[in-house]
């Protein structure tokens, strides 16, 4: 019977490190690739709304389908009729007339941007909305801060988006 070789085996640390890092690199590449795919998918399919000026112009904003349209509620256009609210939404010089069955919720009012869900009535060209969401901007102004320049800026903001 021969004497067993009890010489310590050489260190294999570098090989073990390679084993640990490689799956991480592969997983990171998978995540990056997945992120690119999701980004592309979201960019083309999950843009939340079409702007008013893109209706009938941009791919996915065709008038013959259900749409979500974003625009600013036109100043002086809100009319509350029996069981319905009529108003214009405007963006970048374009305008769409909206008939919403009911009273919009949230903080709906003139000069605020909204997203209206609905379909176009082909005969009247009116956009028949069944949901209105108020898209609040990132600007916050104190309610009692009624200095002249801010009032003028507010007015200009409503005009410029129209």
């Amino acid at each position: 019977m021969s004497t067993p070789d009890l010489t310590p085996r050489p260190e294999q640390t570098p090989k073990r490190q390679r084993r640990r890092i490689m799956p991480m690199v592969v997983l990171a590449l998978v995540v990056v690739a997945g992120g690119v795919v999701i980004t592309q998918a979201l960019s083309t399919a999950v843009d939340y709304y079409c702007n008013v000026d893109e209706v009938g112009e941009r791919s996915g904003c065709d008038t013959g389908r259900r749409l979500r349209i974003q625009g600013t509620v036109g100043e002086g256009t809100v009319v509350v009729a029996t069981g319905a609210t009529l108003f214009d939404i405007r963006f970048n010089g374009a305008s769409v007339k909206v008939e919403y069955a009911g009273e919009p919720g949230g903080i709906f009012k003139e000069c605020l941007p909204v997203v209206v869900h609905g379909v176009f009535d082909e005969s009247s060209g009116m956009f028949l909305g069944d949901r209105v969401e108020v898209k609040h901007s990132e600007d916050y102004v104190a309610v009692n801060d009624n200095r002249l320049e801010e009032a003028e800026a507010d007015s200009a903001a409503c005009d410029s988006s129209a």
Partner: peptide, 22 residues
């Protein structure tokens, strides 16, 4: 910023560093 969202854009940590807050 990447997509059109119902949620507002950043008020404080936006790209333009302009804080639109009272």
């Amino acid at each position: 910023r990447l997509w059109r969202s119902l949620h507002q854009e950043a008020t404080v940590l936006g790209t333009d560093l302009d804080v639109s807050l009272d």
